[in-house]
Design a protein around this nucleic acid. Structure first.
Length: 441
RNA sequence: GGAGGGGUGGCAGAGUGGUUGAUUGCGUCGGUUUCGAAAACCGAUUUGCCCGCAAGGGUAACGGGGGUUCGAAUCCCCCCCCCUCCGCCA
């Protein structure tokens, strides 16, 4: 969520910045109006509550006093609020109840307005960072780095689906069991998948300082709200069923972001870095019919995720570090890749800045997104109530970041297609051999 | 799934309708003392929101949500989580 105070203080600025994300800024004006309304109601209700609190205390004292002295007169605080001297406690009670009901009504109106404000805010994306390139579509993303040269072949490189048909890519079986988009791996490819996961995890824990986590794969709606998949992206999620209000996670980002929900973290304990392997489940509702061949786009895939909680001062630096950790995986696998900085119009909902890492896949002849490294600034932290506290006890919202390190299917495609030989055999990259246990697939 | 116990401030642990945002202990921070430290003593020590330039004032929160009441941490209802035992099952 973006900060309602920002809208209060600089609605035009917020509108300008959000407009670069191709967002309808109408709700901003609406929020501005509602907020003004809310504050008036809220203030009114609190004034009434303050008066009632005083009177109720006085009433209690009066009741206590009358036990000893039945002639005790009504206390001044009570008389002040009621505007008259009550003849007896019963009369005072009736008046207090009426005043309380009026207060409740105003309070209820304020709460209803606050709900409307929140409903708007939950559907507004994060403000883009000051350095985020402005642009409308993915064509406006900026290639900020290229690593390695696209692999050259003295033969026509094949696509992965033509290379590993006899090595365990069993799409028909997956289809039979679950449907299209649920790949089934058997034998060598199944082992390759496991080798990749172990390689990723070992690298990030042993060399990059991340703490390995094992998380639930099903989560509550509230957890998805914290990391901003809900309410806006309900259609992209798999939900258990009406008996259990649980959803299958689309990424380990979801459980990891909520690890410290509601907590205040000491500055010196930040950054906190977590990594986790999980399967990821995505309906890919908006992408039906796109990239359907092979394992380019699937409903279930493995991913090792990197997640960081840090201070606002440090998040830019952590963003670079995190992205480097993901890049290191590709470099160790010797996969040519490029880093894109996404423009305002193409960034994910919660991101203020985002780098995509794209691996070169010579068989399909495309750059494949294998990682997306985002700085969410305080967007998720505001929803999840994650804060940090400095030495002087100033608390402020934490910043959260995450990125894939990496996603398996597309990385597997890159491995297969970049390491193919003319005879159709596939070499295993050196870094992966200890995990796979052989030099060839 | 069944039965029972419990969720209070950084932690421990009181509190069963009326100045209780909450006794107390520990921890932490500041001060006194000391050459320094320990000990002792004194003081401070939750977070959100609203009004205010500020000083300050107001309000809310005792797992979450509803209810009863003039007034709820305290009473009632629903839900969540943790613990123990039984059943079932990897």
């Amino acid at each position: 969520m973006i900060d309602v105070k920002l809208i209060r203080d600089d609605a035009d600025g917020v509108k300008q910045r959000l407009a670069t994300r191709n967002v309808d800024t109408g709700p901003i004006d609406e929020v501005l109006k509602l907020d003004e309304n809310w504050r008036a109601k809220k203030h009114d209700a609190e004034q009434r509550q303050a008066a009632l609190n005083k009177a109720n205390k006085a009433f209690g004292t009066w009741m206590g006093g009358r036990k000893k002295n039945p002639e005790m007169p009504a206390p001044i605080e009570l008389v002040e609020l009621l505007g008259e001297t009550p003849p007896d406690p019963e009369t005072a009670q009736v008046k207090l109840r009426e005043l309380g009901e009026t207060k409740d009504k105003i309070e209820g109106e304020a709460a209803a307005i606050l709900n409307q404000i929140e409903a708007h805010l939950l559907h507004l994306p994060n403000l883009p960072g000051a350095k985020t390139p402005v642009g409308r579509t993915e064509a406006d993303n900026v290639v900020v780095k290229e690593w390695g040269k696209p692999t050259e072949f003295d033969f026509e490189p094949k696509a992965h689906w033509d290379l590993v048909g006899d090595k365990g890519l069993e799409l028909e079986i997956g289809g039979r069991i679950s449907g299209s988009g649920f790949p089934f791996l058997r034998g060598k490819l199944a082992k390759l998948e496991r080798a990749m996961i172990n390689f990723f995890l070992d690298l990030h824990t042993a060399e990059h300082g991340y703490t390995e986590c094992w998380t639930p794969f099903m989560v509550r709606g509230e957890t998805l709200r914290n990391s901003s998949q809900l309410p806006k992206f309900y259609d992209d999620l798999y939900r258990a069923d009406e008996r259990d209000d649980l959803y299958l996670i689309p990424t380990a980002e979801v459980p990891l972001t909520s690890v410290h929900a509601g907590e205040i973290i000491a500055d010196e304990d930040a950054p906190i870095r977590y990594c986790a392997y999980t399967p990821c489940f995505r309906r890919e509702a908006g992408a039906a019919g796109k990239d359907t061949r092979g394992i380019l786009r699937v409903h279930q895939f493995s991913k090792v995720e990197l997640m960081v909680v840090t201070t606002p001062e440090r998040s830019d630096e952590e963003h670079e570090t995190l992205t480097r950790c993901a890049e290191t995986v590709l470099e160790k696998l010797n996969i040519p890749y490029r880093r894109l900085e996404l423009c305002t119009g193409d960034m994910g909902f919660g991101a203020a800045r985002c780098y995509d890492l794209e691996a070169w896949a010579p068989g399909v002849g495309k750059w494949l997104e294998v990682s997306s490294c985002s700085n969410f600034t305080d967007f998720q932290a505001r929803r999840a109530k994650i804060r940090v506290r400095d030495k002087d006890k100033n608390t402020r919202l934490a910043h959260t970041l995450n990125g894939s390190g990496l996603a398996c299917p597309r990385t597997m495609i890159a491995i297969i297609e970049n390491n193919q030989r003319a005879d159709g055999s596939i070499a295993i990259p050196g870094a992966l051999q200890p995990f796979y246990g052989a030099a060839e697939l």
